[in-house]
Nucleic acid binder design. Structure first.
Lengths: 138, 138
DNA sequence: GCCAACGGTATCCTATAGATACTATGAAGT
DNA sequence: ACTTCATAGTATCTATAGGATACCGTTGGC
């Protein structure tokens, strides 16, 4: 579980373990784990999407949070923001090559999620039932 | 991007799109994307680990948040909590079969992260430089 | 002149995460 | 007997992030 590479970034320790908070891989890993970012990336899989379309597809994200998410993804080089000089304004968001390279791993994760939803929901039921039964009686 | 299956859970809509907030897959997907959960799962890859060892390996997680994370993972059937009647107390956490099945997808994601850290950090530098240059001058 | 479409901001409130201190148990040491 | 130690958490408070809602600026069409 060692990290990765020969970066030189101030404040980040390249040789660290991924469990180290200053390990660059961990920083990236937690970005992928962002609540909205991975959903947005998947919506962009088929090509450029406008801001308002993103709002419709990623329910229910508020415009503030969507803007924050998009700015972060842009800063990380995963998407490109294109402004068209029109009225009403038009802004397209699309994946970069780097962003596209993330689609495969995300699809694997999504497949896992969809395959295992029944098991997880069953486990939750069992857990909650056990708790609900234990507390009132005890 | 359709969801998955024939669940019957109250409040969850099985036929929904993964972008639907009530889609079970999305619920699971966001659980995977939890800030700490995926790190904890990876620490448990090699076998049972005690609470205090987890605290050491997953820096820097507070005991409260670690407890919350472990309870959630247990509820979802990804880990098992075993209490030994000892003093001082001993509690082991280990992956279930379901939890182990998540290791592969997580490893793919981690590989992606480690491979692409340089690109992402470069993109951040470029983005920040452009902003830092634009604002004071403009 | 007025309204609508779009891509956001501004403001406020709440929920989550984080820091820190504290608890219970009992065996071992002196 | 008393103190100390280790473990696995809880309790309490504060800081930060997320979320709900309202609003802004542009300008083409009516």
């Amino acid at each position: 579980m060692r990290c990765c590479l020969d970066t030189h970034l101030p404040g980040l320790r390249p040789g660290a373990d991924i469990m180290d908070p200053l390990c660059p891989s961990r920083v990236v890993f937690q970005r992928i784990g962002d609540k909205w970012a991975s959903l947005v990336v998947q919506v962009l899989a088929d090509g450029p999407v406008r801001f308002s379309e993103l709002r419709k597809h990623v329910h229910v994200i508020t415009p503030k949070v969507l803007t924050q998410t998009l700015r972060t993804l842009e800063r990380d080089g995963l998407i490109i923001r294109t402004v068209f000089a029109q009225v009403p304004p038009r802004v397209d968001y699309q994946l970069t090559g780097l962003g596209e390279s993330l689609l495969g791993p995300l699809a694997i994760l999504r497949d896992w999620a969809e395959s295992n939803v029944p098991s997880i929901l069953d486990a939750r039921d069992a857990y909650d039932d056990a708790r609900a039964g234990a507390l009132p009686e005890g």
